[in-house]
């Protein structure tokens, strides 16, 4: 379970501090697919960065499975990250250009010192699940946007995380590919019972797989969105 309480975060802009997150609170249940919506620039990525310990909030708290993670120094939180079972799929995929699709999916396992052969078979399994078997030896430069997205998702899931954070997993894709990615996320959520937080500005699309979520507003505040509120 994830609890976010009164989270605030500002950045130093050229004309003084910009308040990006202003008292954001919400709760995500285990195994849920939770949406984080809002127009471009409201701080969705910032919120995700706080959740993944890459950014330290100014105030407020984040608890993941009862563990308070908001006060920790993200740069040196390697062990904590491994323990929490948190995986992130970033907005720009962030695949390594020096590795093939298979190599990219194997990376998190190599970091965990999983033996090569085991890492390879596990990575192949995930590529199969995401429909990329035939692309395993391709380098990112010769993959399409949707394929890169699926490699990034496979890479995030290969470690069997408990929480999956997805930043705009469908925004760079056409509607059809976007729908298939969302269906994939739903399937993986069922198979691994992984808790999913999905950040997107495409509310209508994402709501096909999310029950609850928050809508973030340009003033940095957030409003909770429930199933019945929109449908």
């Amino acid at each position: 379970m994830i609890t976010v309480e009164h989270l605030c975060k500002s950045y130093n802009g050229p004309h003084g501090p910009i308040k990006v997150l202003n008292d954001v609170s919400f709760q995500v249940e285990r195994g849920e697919i939770f949406g984080i919506y809002g127009p471009s620039g409201v701080g969705k990525t910032t919120l995700l960065r706080c959740l993944s310990l890459l950014e330290k909030p100014d105030s407020g708290d984040i608890f993941i499975d009862g563990e308070k993670v908001s006060s920790l120094d993200g740069k040196n939180a390697g062990h904590l990250r491994l323990r929490l079972g948190l995986s992130v799929v970033f907005q720009g995929y962030n695949l390594l250009n020096s590795r093939t699709a298979l190599g990219n999916v194997m990376l998190p396992l190599e970091i965990r010192r999983v033996p090569k052969a085991e890492a390879r078979s596990k990575a192949k399994e995930l590529l199969k699940l995401t429909g990329l078997e035939s692309r395993q030896d391709f380098y990112p430069s010769s993959l399409s946007g949707g394929e890169k997205q699926r490699v990034a998702i496979a890479r995030a899931l290969v470690t069997e995380p408990r929480v999956l954070l997805l930043d705009e997993p469908t925004s760079a894709l056409d509607r059809e590919t976007a729908t298939s990615i969302l269906q994939l996320v739903e399937k993986l959520n069922r198979i691994y019972s992984v808790t999913v937080l999905i950040v997107t500005h495409q509310i209508e699309l994402a709501r096909s797989i999310t029950r609850r979520g928050i809508f973030m507003c340009p003033n940095g505040k957030s409003v909770e969105v429930k199933e019945d509120a929109v449908n």
């Binding site: 993944s52 890459l54 995986s87 992130v88 390594l96 250009n97 590795r99 990376l107 190599e110 970091i111």
Partner: peptide
């Protein structure tokens, strides 16, 4: 790319992992 480095940090990579898996191969 800064984002690529952060992605690896978020996977739990240590500094040595970053050198071995990211810095050297990506800048080769």
């Amino acid at each position: 790319d800064r984002g690529t480095i952060e992605a690896c940090i978020s996977m739990g990579a240590s500094r040595l992992d970053l050198i071995r898996f990211v810095f050297i191969p990506e800048s080769l």
